[in-house]
Structure formats: structure tokens, C-alpha cells
Amino acid sequence: MIQLLLLIIEFFKIGLFAIGGGLATLPFLYDLTVTHPDWVNRSQLLDMVAISESTPGALGVNMATYVGNIIAGPLGGVATTIGLVMPSVIIIVIVAKFLERFKDSPIVQNVFYGIRPASIGLIMAAAFVVIKEALMDIPLFSETGSFTDLFRIKSIIFGIILYIGMVKFKKHPILYIAIAAVVGNIIAF
């Protein structure tokens, strides 16, 4: 029981200080291997990243659940998740109340006039990272220096086919994800 409380507090702190999404929690989790070596070690964290990236859900939540599970079983996983999301929920509810009250004020509207295009710029930057990893082979390119090695041709062709399918048929994203999982098993990109 005391351990579960400790876990909630420890992950509450991580949720409070990790700004910028799931990957921002990673350095804090590495810190845990130093401050609480009896809880989790570095090689377990490597498994954690691999599994969290290959399961659905937010990366930060998956990692917290995994670590909690290692430390104290299923209840530990629930405790770390609650701890991690609690600061988010509290802070966002406060911000949302503030926004609701002032959303018609010209100041807030002017501020968001600048923030909205920045928000899409940040999303584009995140998309760029994902695209770089999925469609380009930078390690191979830096080894051979040949531009034909820079792009994963098979992946790009499949990506274009997917995009045309999305624009044309406008189906739910999960359908395309399922198709991609099957095609990945046939072709192995």
C-alpha cells in the first residue's frame, strides 16, 4: 500500500515536470533507475520503450504502466498511470476554465491568431520526424553516400497508395492501419 502511494507520488512528479509529450518522460524514467535501483533497471527500460512503441496508446502512459507493472504488479501499473495523468487533468481543467471565460476577449483571440499556425507548424515538425523514420534510410545513406539509398522506395510507393486511398475513400484511420499491418507482414518494409 505504501509502495503504491510512493509510485503515485513519483509518477505525479514525472507527469508534472515532463513538458512536451510522452518522450519527455523518458529522461525522468532513466532517473528512476538511479534514485530507485530496486524498482527498475536500464535494460528493463529498453524493453519498455520497445513495447510501448509497438502497442496502441500514448507513449508516456504505456511506459508508466509498464514500469509500474514491473515494480508492483497490475496494481502498480494502475498506480503509476493515475499518478502520471493526474497533473495533466488538473492543469488542463484549470486552463480550460480560464479559456472558456476569456475566449471571447480580443486579447485571447489575438493570441490564438498567432498560436494556431504555430501549432500546425509543430505538428508538421513531428510529422517530419515520423516521415524521416518511415520513408528514409539515413543510416544507410550516411554509410554509402548514394542518394538512391536515402529513400525507401517500397515504403514511399506504399505510402502514396495509402494516401490516395485515404483521400478517395475517407474511411476510418483504423482500417488503413490494419491494412498496413497486413501488408507489412507480406512485404516486410
Binding site: 510529422a127 506504399f158 492501419i177 499491418a181 518494409f189
Partner: peptide
């Protein structure tokens, strides 16, 4: 789990799909 061949291959496809979904 992350190193099972089927999972690895499925994710080689899913990664491309997620990239395209975000572009869209």
C-alpha cells in the same frame, strides 16, 4: 513482444501508415 517477427513486420507497415495519416 516487440521482437516477434509478425509484430516487427506489422509495425514496419504501420509506421508508414501513421506517417501518411498524420500528413493527411
Amino acid at each position: 513482444f516487440a521482437h516477434i517477427t509478425y509484430v516487427e513486420r506489422a509495425f514496419s507497415g504501420i509506421r508508414i501508415c501513421v506517417a501518411v495519416l498524420i500528413i493527411n
